[in-house]
Every structure is written in structure tokens, then in C-alpha cells.
């Protein structure tokens, strides 16, 4: 079976409506369907791995968004499901995020290490 690297870089687009990130969700459901899949969080999507995200409290036109996204927990769920989840070190640092702010279990990879990561997979799905 092909080993897939699912690359997530676009962040917080539609997540309040979807109540999750559509590519994290896709990657998780494909894992559940038997895919050999890893996830790379790069660019703004590295922020998905930051602990303590809180999107609660929104009410629009009297309609509460009662089940807001919990993207940090979704990353933890991916890891718990056995998905190797990588975060680009420089993309974290560029955004002023300290590694201690990240959820446990993510694997740090440097930009210069991406070629090796790509080489270690048979298919790159760059969403």
C-alpha cells in the first residue's frame, strides 16, 4: 500500500462552519479506512498544534455555534489514531510559537528535512 503524506498548510479557513479542518478530517477518515497516511503541518497550519485553542462563544443572529472546532484536540486524535504528524520547526519559530506550546506527540521536522520526509512517502497529497 502506498504511503501517503498529507500536507496541510491552509489554516482557519471555514473551520468555524465545518467545526473542524477539512483536511485533518479527511486524513483521519482515510486512516480509519485503512490508509497508510502521515500528516505534515506547515505554514499557518502549524498553529493547529498549539495547545489551548478556544473558538467558543460565538452566536450569530441568535444562533449559537454550539460545537466549535477544537483543532488542537483533533491533532491529538490524529496522533492517537496512529498518524505520524509532523510540524515544520521554522514555521513554528517564524510565528513566535514556542515548542512547549505544542501538543505532545507531534514530530518536528526542519525545512531542510522536508526532502527526506517526501522521499519517505510514495505519494504527496498537498492540499
Amino acid at each position: 500500500m502506498a504511503k501517503i503524506l498529507s500536507v496541510v498548510e491552509r489554516a482557519y479557513h471555514g473551520t468555524l462552519e465545518e467545526q473542524d479542518d477539512t483536511i485533518l478530517w479527511m486524513s483521519h477518515i482515510l486512516k480509519n479506512a485503512g490508509a497508510d497516511i502521515s500528516v505534515l503541518l506547515r505554514s499557518n497550519a502549524v498553529n493547529y498544534a498549539v495547545k489551548g485553542q478556544d473558538a467558543s462563544g460565538i452566536t450569530i443572529g441568535g444562533v449559537p455555534l454550539s460545537n466549535p472546532p477544537k483543532l488542537d484536540q483533533d491533532v491529538v486524535s490524529l496522533i492517537d489514531a496512529g498518524v505520524d504528524t509532523y510540524v515544520v520547526t521554522e514555521d513554528v519559530e517564524d510565528r513566535g510559537i514556542k515548542q512547549g506550546e505544542l501538543v505532545g506527540g507531534v514530530k518536528m521536522v526542519s525545512r531542510s528535512g522536508l526532502a527526506d520526509l517526501f522521499d519517505g512517502h510514495d505519494a504527496i497529497w498537498h492540499w
Binding site: 500500500m1 502506498a2 483536511i23 479527511m26 482515510l30 479506512a33 505519494a123 497529497w125 498537498h126 492540499w127
Partner: peptide, 18 residues
């Protein structure tokens, strides 16, 4: 998505256009 996975496993190549 399971259909997409099955197709990708059966295909010569898969191109994801996000």
C-alpha cells in the same frame, strides 16, 4: 473519502489540487 482512497490505490497517479 473512502472512494477517493480506493481510486488512488487503483490509479497510475493521484493529483490533489487543494
Amino acid at each position: 473519502p473512502a472512494d477517493f482512497l480506493k481510486w488512488s490505490q487503483e490509479s497510475t497517479n493521484t493529483l490533489v489540487i487543494g
